[in-house]
C-alpha cells in the first residue's frame, strides 16, 4: 500500500528539521494554509489528511480498525517511517493533538517537539474532571450532522464505494473544502468525542506546547490547565481568540507562539 497516497501526504519547504501538521475533526490539511506556509522557509513542511478525511483514500477507512485513535497514530508513524523522518515537530489540531500524543508515546525517536492546538484528552465530563460535555450533547452533535447530511448522504455513498458514476454530484460536493463522507464523519465523530486519553498524558517525555484558546466551546480553559499539569515537560500558552481554530481565527498569534517555542532548536541548528 502506498502510505503517502493513502494519507494524501504533501511535502514542501526546505530545512533540516521537519514539521508535520495534522488537521482535526471535520476538515483536512487545507486548514493549515494560513499557518504552515510561514514555516516553509526554515522547515520541511509535511501536510497530510487523516484516513477518511479530505483527499485520503476513503476505501482504506475500515471502521473496525479506526475505532480508536491509535490507528491514526500508527498511520502517522508509518508516514514518518516512509519519509525516513526523525526528530520531527508534530503540530496537531483538536483530535489530532491526542493522535500526536499517542504517536509520540509509541515511538519517541520520531519526534523532537509536540505542539497541541486546542487539545482535549476527554470531551465528556467525569468524576473530578470537567471536559465540558455530557453524553447527550454528543448525541445532539451527531443528530446535527445527520440533519446536515440528509439529502446528499445517498449521493456521497458511491464515492466511498469507489464507483463515481455520478461525477457532477461528486464534483459539486468536492467544491466544499471540508467535506467528509457522512458515514465516516459520523463514525470518526463518535471515536473522537468518546475517546479518553487522560492516562496517556504523563507518558509523554517530548517537550510539549499547549496552545489554548481563550474562548473555546470544545476545549475549555480548564482542560488546557489539566493537560499542562499532566504532561511533564509542557508549556501552556493562551491565545486571545475565540473558537476552536486559532490557526484560522488568529494565524499570526499562532505562528508567533509556535516560533517562540521552537526558538531553542532553531538557534541550535543555526549554530
Amino acid at each position: 500500500m502506498d502510505v503517502l497516497k493513502r494519507n494524501n501526504v504533501s511535502v514542501s519547504g526546505a530545512g533540516s528539521q521537519t514539521m508535520v501538521f495534522v488537521h482535526g475533526f471535520g476538515c483536512n490539511q487545507r486548514m493549515w494554509r494560513l499557518v504552515a506556509p510561514a514555516f516553509e522557509a526554515r522547515y520541511r513542511v509535511v501536510l497530510l489528511d487523516l484516513v477518511g478525511a479530505g483527499q485520503s483514500d476513503l476505501t482504506a477507512y475500515d471502521p473496525a480498525r479506526y475505532s480508536s485513535l491509535a490507528a491514526h497514530a500508527e498511520d502517522i508513524l508509518e508516514v514518518l517511517r516512509t519519509l525516513n523522518l526523525s526528530d520531527a515537530v508534530f503540530v496537531g489540531h483538536s483530535v489530532s493533538a491526542m493522535i500526536g500524543v499517542l504517536a509520540v508515546i509509541k515511538d519517541p525517536t520520531r519526534f523532537s517537539r509536540l505542539i497541541l492546538v486546542a487539545p482535549s484528552p476527554r470531551y465528556l465530563n467525569d468524576e473530578g474532571y470537567n471536559g465540558g460535555f455530557e453524553a447527550a450533547d454528543i448525541e445532539e452533535l451527531l443528530e446535527t450532522m445527520d440533519n446536515n447530511y440528509l439529502g446528499w448522504s445517498a449521493a456521497v455513498t458511491p464515492m466511498i464505494m469507489g464507483h463515481a458514476d455520478r461525477p457532477a454530484l461528486t464534483e459539486e460536493l468536492n467544491n466544499s473544502f471540508c467535506n467528509t463522507d457522512p458515514t465516516i464523519a459520523r463514525h470518526f465523530a463518535r471515536v473522537t468525542f468518546l475517546s479518553d486519553n487522560r492516562a496517556d498524558l504523563p507518558l509523554v517525555r517530548t517537550p510539549t506546547l499547549i496552545l489554548q484558546c481563550a474562548h473555546d466551546a470544545l476545549a475549555p480553559v480548564a482542560v488546557g490547565g489539566f493537560l499542562h499539569q499532566q504532561i511533564p515537560n509542557s508549556q501552556l500558552v493562551m491565545l486571545d481568540t475565540s473558537g476552536h481554530c486559532p490557526h484560522l481565527s488568529a494565524p499570526e498569534a499562532t505562528i508567533k507562539a509556535i516560533e517562540a517555542f521552537l526558538e531553542p532548536i532553531s538557534s541550535v541548528s543555526s549554530l
Partner: peptide, 26 residues
Amino acid sequence: TIGGRLHYEMHCAPLLILQGQVREIS
C-alpha cells in the same frame, strides 16, 4: 443547541474563513 454549536465551531467557523461562505446548514 449544543450539537449545533459544536458543529458550528468545527465546521462552519473554519469554512467561513477558508471559503468565505456556508450554505444551507441545518
